[in-house]
């Protein structure tokens, strides 16, 4: 396997201005994050609201340059890329946003929305662009007559199809999907997840799939990266993560995810407290104020990601071998099918 994306120590620090004389506050949305994405896989990124998922997405899609660190996509180092390389990279990596309502220009017809990337990035004629757009409509399960309609005439699921169609107009290699199904109902969510799976197979796409829904992630991901307060705390193959979650935060997330099976409530360990502010993060391991395994060391030192079997995890309790095996009540074993 070859890595199509390599991120090394990526950071994104926002300066929050506080009037003329006060020193601006630094908000570290993403901190020293390193990972790779293999060609053709789906890397899922999970974590609570505000942990830096979308910020990472904006860096990966070159909407925002990282304030620190190095990003290599398809063999090209972004920081040193020439203008023509950057142009190529921008069409190789496309993004689909969370909100199917806000992401489309309400004054543009679907046809124009789909053709816009072609207009900017290719020298195709109007007729050729139209042909490509109509083909794409069929590809994402929309109909030819939708070409001349405005976004407000579509349901949430259809709008998400349009957003996906637009993202793949330039035949990208990588799609960054920022909560692509979070705003959709279960029945529509299933339609969109199937569409994404089909497109990935047919077009050999690599997905970076951002989600806070662990049941969706389990269904789509090849590997999973769990983030907490701007840093990855665990990176593991999907089966491994669900069968043998190591980081206490991963375990807490799994425990908190409601299982669609009656009578399972109560047996689980609950996380207390809320995500701390990224402006003033806790010392040491950022998870320590909420962690049942925190000790003096975790308050002072920050654990680095280290390899444990197939999993990379940043936790002293794991390193020191004092983390109990995952609680049977926490880990979901799929019930056999009738």
């Amino acid at each position: 396997m070859t890595a199509i994306v390599t991120a090394k120590n990526l950071s994104q620090i926002y300066e929050l201005k506080r009037g003329m004389f006060a020193k601006p506050l630094a908000l570290k949305a993403v901190k020293e994050t390193s990972f790779t994405v293999e060609q053709g896989e789906t890397l899922a990124i999970v974590g609570e609201s505000g942990c830096g998922k979308s910020t990472l997405a904006r860096m990966l899609t070159m909407i925002e340059p990282p304030t620190e660190g190095e990003l290599t996509i398809d063999g090209i180092r972004i920081a040193e890329a020439s203008d023509s390389d950057l142009k190529r990279l921008r069409s190789i990596v496309q993004i689909v946003f969370q909100n199917p309502y806000g992401a489309l220009n309400p004054r543009q017809k679907v046809g124009a929305i789909l053709e816009e990337p072609l207009k900017i990035n290719t020298s195709l004629s109007a007729a050729e662009r139209r042909e490509r757009a109509e083909k794409m409509l069929a590809e994402v399960g929309l109909r030819p007559e939708h070409y001349g309609r405005y976004p407000h005439m579509f349901s949430g699921g259809q709008r998400q199809r349009i957003a996906i169609a637009r993202a793949i107009m330039l035949e990208p290699k990588i799609l960054v999907l920022d909560e692509p199904v979070s705003a959709l109902d279960v029945s529509i969510q299933a339609q969109i997840l199937n569409l994404l799976a089909e497109l990935q197979e047919r077009l050999g796409l690599t997905y970076i799939f951002i989600s806070h829904d662990l049941s969706v992630v389990r269904h789509v991901a090849t590997r999973v990266m769990v983030m907490y307060l701007g840093r990855p705390v665990e990176i593991a193959p999907v089966e491994e993560l669900y069968a043998n979650p190591l980081h206490p935060y991963t375990r807490a997330l799994l425990a908190a995810t409601p299982a669609a099976r009656p009578g399972r409530r109560g047996a689980r360990q609950r996380l207390t407290g809320e995500l701390p502010s990224p402006i003033n993060p806790p010392t040491g391991c950022a998870f320590h104020p909420r962690c049942p395994y925190a000790d003096e060391r975790t308050k002072r030192e920050r654990p680095e990601l280290t390899q444990h079997g197939k999993t990379m995890v940043a936790c002293f309790a794991v390193d020191e071998g004092r983390l109990p095996p995952p609680d049977a009540a926490v880990v979901e074993t799929p019930e056999p099918r009738a």
Binding site: S187, Q189, A197, V220, P334
Partner: peptide, 21 residues
């Protein structure tokens, strides 16, 4: 159909969907 469309109930592959809206 609603229960079947839930990813946690699916076992790999495609999810059963409910057509339409």
């Amino acid at each position: 159909a609603l229960l079947a469309a839930m990813p946690e109930r699916a076992r790999g592959g495609r999810l059963p969907t409910i057509p339409g809206v």
